[in-house]
Write a protein that binds this DNA or RNA. Sequence first.
DNA 1: AAATCTGATGGTATCGATACCATTGCCACA
DNA 2: TGTGGCAATGGTATCGATACCATCAGATTT
Lengths: 335, 335
Amino acid sequence: MDKPKWVTMKDVADRANVGKITVSRVIRTPEKVSQETRRRVEDVIRELGYVPDETAGALSSNRSRVIGALVSTLSDSVFASTIEGLSRTLRQSGYELLLSKTDYEPELETAAIRTLLGRRPDGLVLSSTDHTDSALKLLASSGVPVVEIWQLPDHPIDHVVGFSNYHAGRTVTDYLIQSSRQRIAFIGTSRAGDRRGKRRAEGYRDALMNSGLGEALYIDGDLSFSSDADIGASGFAQALTRWPDLDAVVCVSDPVAMGAICEASRRGIQIPGQMAITGFGGLELARESALNLTTIEFPGQKIGKVAAEILVDPEQNERKNIVDLGFNLVRRGTA
Amino acid sequence: MDKPKWVTMKDVADRANVGKITVSRVIRTPEKVSQETRRRVEDVIRELGYVPDETAGALSSNRSRVIGALVSTLSDSVFASTIEGLSRTLRQSGYELLLSKTDYEPELETAAIRTLLGRRPDGLVLSSTDHTDSALKLLASSGVPVVEIWQLPDHPIDHVVGFSNYHAGRTVTDYLIQSSRQRIAFIGTSRAGDRRGKRRAEGYRDALMNSGLGEALYIDGDLSFSSDADIGASGFAQALTRWPDLDAVVCVSDPVAMGAICEASRRGIQIPGQMAITGFGGLELARESALNLTTIEFPGQKIGKVAAEILVDPEQNERKNIVDLGFNLVRRGTA
DNA sequence: AAATCTGATGGTATCGATACCATTGCCACA
DNA sequence: TGTGGCAATGGTATCGATACCATCAGATTT
């Protein structure tokens, strides 16, 4: 016995003395079947341990009940929470999640989109907003509803759920300026294909320009370090070399901020007295009982939830949804 | 036009003046088609933007090229790395990942297994090792290969890839004992269905027993806190109340350890001078440039990779694989 | 009493691929 | 010259469900 034999709908039907179609109705639209028949069929289903073959169902109904999601990386825990939100909401509506990764590379994304489309998903969630031409063509001709998440793109494909990284960067920088900080640097990690960090940096720059505070200092994290915290530590050191009178740094993410904080305390620099440090992300480790980091929090889980709701609800699917869920400047102990 | 029209294999075949089956061969087994025909078909595929319908293929070939994965939670970044490993390896072999979550609840897991089986996956990866009877029955009768990961279970269903949490707990405790620590407490979070933490605690207990150091102190983290770091902070405070002469704590995870460290520094307790603190997990934040935490590291990504390889390779699939990937005690600054 | 409706059920075609077997043409070898 | 083998390709049945339409009994309407 190499191939496991699955119980089919016909097996159930025969055993319960009904037509296949009635079994199908018991599963999909129970209200259309008489109480008595339903009970009988349900008993047989349990008895035989019948598990409907969704792939067959997908083929004939032209609905797969699968949503494909494409994320840049899973390591970043902010993505993890979005996946959580997606997963939970989808399951509640009887959908499932097909997950793929792009590693921030548009080429890989294109390939992944193609593979995902091969499964005929009822919707697609894309965490990146930079797409190749062939990816766009593929998406357009497939007609599959798409939700882009995290960043509000300039030219949305279809639906969007996210927030403005630009405004987030600007907001946190404005806050530092209002707190009388004079020399504010930005520590980023310029991964290709990651527009989010760049947009935050742009917000930072514009806030400085606007305030007349003058010169901006963008430190490009050394990607040869394996962890973002390492990048933050070395970036902070660099910034201090360039600007000895540095009194604030805006970090592109919470882990980077963590590295910066550690480096600062290693040098005996007092936070927030001599130095203000801010992050992005609302990671758990940023909380009061841990880093106590002043940071921008995003509703990661909610982004996933809302994206799922749009895709699942045929009505919402009609129109283009652009949802800005905003962000929150959380003031804690580091700035 | 409500329903998008997909290009089918027949469309391609007609256009290229061949039979459908030849198109199928061009895609699955190109070497069986003459060079010239292949080129012609490939041109048409590109021209029409044909994307094969994998669900249909799955139905007729009885192979879905889908692997279902069931994880307790995604928030924990150690799981994230496993998913990364899985995802990467599967994609390389032309498989895809269907993801579901159990939230540490066996009931939810059972339901999720049923739904996953509905998609007729070629394999299943389970991150938990506690299963309900009906889940076990379902798995057995489906005949789908299963890999249990992370914890080496007492009664494996099929394949296993993981390491011994018990030994990990024992190893780190032994290390503390050898470092002349006298009063060692354990801070855990007893989530239902999470055997891993319990096994670590058992290792801790046995290490103490064995050394003749006497009394163990197990602090059960207050789950009403939303973050593990908060649990660590409050757990540490509790431990100190019970044992004022405390000089070491074994924390069930890195975030918990982080909370404990912060609480310690808030109280002016010196680490590692007065107090040793260890974690579990090898999180990024534990690294040198950040927490500099002494901890047990697991090969999270590799677990995913190996699990995927077992499921994808028909040969390995034959026999039961029990793979112990071990762990690593990483000595850093906190113990 | 005939016509109409409604709820419950079944039959058949169909979704888009692959499996399996058949066919064709060509070459090599006895 | 005939036979066997092989490479390339095609035809048809099939996978397991759902869509669509048909049927039929019994109730309701006129």
